[in-house]
């Protein structure tokens, strides 16, 4: 369970988050949605202790993120930031292998090798495994970063706009993989999404943020209503139903 209590964040003169409280039970896929600058990425990086907590408290599986040793948290929680901009010339297999670092501190055993190959396979990277990252396209690089986060094998996975740079096929594939991770491996997945229709189909729960506050929270059918969406994104849009899931016509 992730427990966020009364978290506020202020950077300079800007109030990024204002008194956010949120509980996410173990298991399932939660999508964070909202306009640019709503505070989604900041909330994610606070949960993942990438930024110091200013006020309030956050705990993951009962571990307070500001006091638990980083090494311990790395076995419970993996984070993929938006545009990680890894400039190191690593081969794809090497990069994915570093996902095992929290468990092995550098000594890779047979089990790790198996997990690394499985992650490469899952994200269609087997043929690219011995290529350097700087020889890949943006989408391929993004897949390699996601594979590394998967390979970390943590119960909780936080992903900040993982669909960036992915083509339609791999975007759909990634959402299915995240869904499978939640269903089959009982992992807890929290993902910042811009494509609200991916959230509509794959998420168990949608948390909508605006101006540093949570403005809507519930299952997709509840949150993806015209009036709620207008409040979050600032303009009217139609919502129709296709195959039992809401489809937001946000582009018209």
């Amino acid at each position: 369970m992730i427990e966020i209590k009364n978290v506020s964040l202020r950077l300079g003169d800007t109030q990024i988050l204002e008194d956010v409280s949120l509980t996410m039970p173990k298991g399932g896929l939660t999508a964070l949605v909202g306009p640019n600058g709503a505070g989604k990425s900041s909330l994610l990086s606070l949960i993942a202790r990438l930024q110091p907590l200013q006020s309030g408290s956050i705990s993951v599986d009962g571990l307070a993120v500001d006091t638990t040793p980083s090494r311990r948290l790395a076995k419970t929680l993996a984070i993929l930031r938006q545009d990680p901009a890894v400039a190191s010339r690593l081969k794809v297999r090497e990069l994915v292998g570093f996902g095992r670092f929290p468990h092995q501190r550098g000594r890779i055993d047979d089990n790790d090798l198996r997990l690394i190959e499985a992650a490469l396979q899952q994200f269609g990277l087997t043929d690219l495994a011995d290529r350097f990252l700087d020889h890949l396209s943006g989408g391929q690089r993004q897949r390699a970063m996601v594979a590394m986060a998967f390979c970390q094998g943590t119960d909780y996975m936080l992903l900040d706009e993982p669909l960036n740079n992915l083509d339609m096929m791999f975007a759909r594939q990634l959402m299915r993989d995240l869904r499978a991770a939640a269903d089959k491996d009982r992992r807890t997945v929290i993902v910042v999404l811009h494509d609200i229709n991916h959230a509509a189909v794959y998420a168990d729960r949608i948390v909508a943020m605006k101006d540093g506050r949570i403005v809507a929270d519930g299952p997709p059918a509840e949150v993806l209503q015209p009036d709620v969406l207008a409040k979050v994104f600032g303009y009217e849009m139609d919502v129709i139903e296709v195959g039992g899931a809401p489809l937001v016509l946000h582009h018209r």
């Binding site: 990086s45 993942a48 202790r49 990438l50 040793p69 980083s70 090494r71 311990r72 948290l73 790395a74 076995k75 993996a78 984070i79 993929l80 930031r81 990680p84 901009a85 890894v86 400039a87 190191s88 690593l90 570093f98 996902g99 670092f101 929290p102 501190r105 550098g106 970390q152």
Partner: peptide, 20 residues
């Protein structure tokens, strides 16, 4: 060496992997 390689990927990746 492994820790230096991870550090070369930046602070956020390093922290995410539990590196001090």
């Amino acid at each position: 060496a492994d820790r230096l390689t991870i550090a070369s990927m930046g602070r956020e990746v390093s922290v995410g992997l539990g590196l001090d």
